[in-house]
Every structure is written in structure tokens, then in C-alpha cells.
């Protein structure tokens, strides 16, 4: 029988937990596994920092897109087309 140390996870699993952590709570065991792995793996530490950075970037991107969108509008031709479609539907 395989007696695998439950605390030892692979880089593949660790990166998955880093990803999951961005939005979901990790279980106690998952937290310990990730912490332990990051202590001994510099690649995954790097990965974790980079993913945190990307998440921050996305938050900023979202508010940027929202701000920009306030200047977007439909042309009057596009609106006329919509009005006409609505009128036709009511006939």
C-alpha cells in the first residue's frame, strides 16, 4: 500500500491550488499543502506571485473597461433600426 505523505503535493497540484485560491476558500488541508509546497519550491512561489499579479491586473482592467464604456454609444442609425424592429413587432 502506498503511504503517501498527505502534505507533499506536486507542482501541478500546487499551481491548481494557487489558481483555486484566487476565488474559492481552500480547505485547511489544502492550505497546509500549498504553504508547505511554496516553502520548498521557488518556481511555484514565483508562479503564485505572478498569478496574484494577474488577478490584480484583471480587477484593474475591469474597472478600466467600465470607465471607458461610458463614452460608447449606438449611432442614431442603429437606434432607428431598433425602433423600426420594435414597431414592426407591434403591428
Amino acid at each position: 500500500m502506498e503511504t503517501k505523505n498527505k502534505l507533499m503535493i506536486t507542482c501541478k497540484e500546487a499551481t491548481y491550488l494557487v489558481s483555486k485560491k484566487q476565488q474559492d476558500k481552500l480547505s485547511f488541508l489544502e492550505k497546509m499543502q500549498l504553504q508547505f509546497h511554496l516553502m520548498i519550491c521557488s518556481y511555484c512561489r514565483r508562479f503564485a506571485n505572478q498569478i496574484d499579479f494577474i488577478t490584480k491586473g484583471i480587477v484593474r482592467l475591469r474597472s478600466r473597461i467600465e470607465k471607458q464604456s461610458t463614452s460608447i454609444s449606438l449611432t442614431s442609425a442603429q437606434k432607428d433600426k431598433m425602433k423600426e424592429a420594435l414597431r414592426n413587432q407591434q403591428k
Binding site: 464604456s69 454609444s73 437606434k79 425602433k83 420594435l86 414597431r87
Partner: peptide, 19 residues
């Protein structure tokens, strides 16, 4: 009144969608 919708809401809905 559906005939007022386009003028009142089309830009707001368009922004919501395009984002």
C-alpha cells in the same frame, strides 16, 4: 411604453453588453 425604450435605454444596455 416600448416605443420609448430605445431612446431611454439602448446606450446603457449596449454598454452593459459590450463590456
Amino acid at each position: 411604453d416600448p416605443n420609448t425604450w430605445v431612446d431611454a435605454y439602448s446606450d446603457l444596455l449596449f454598454r452593459y453588453a459590450i463590456i
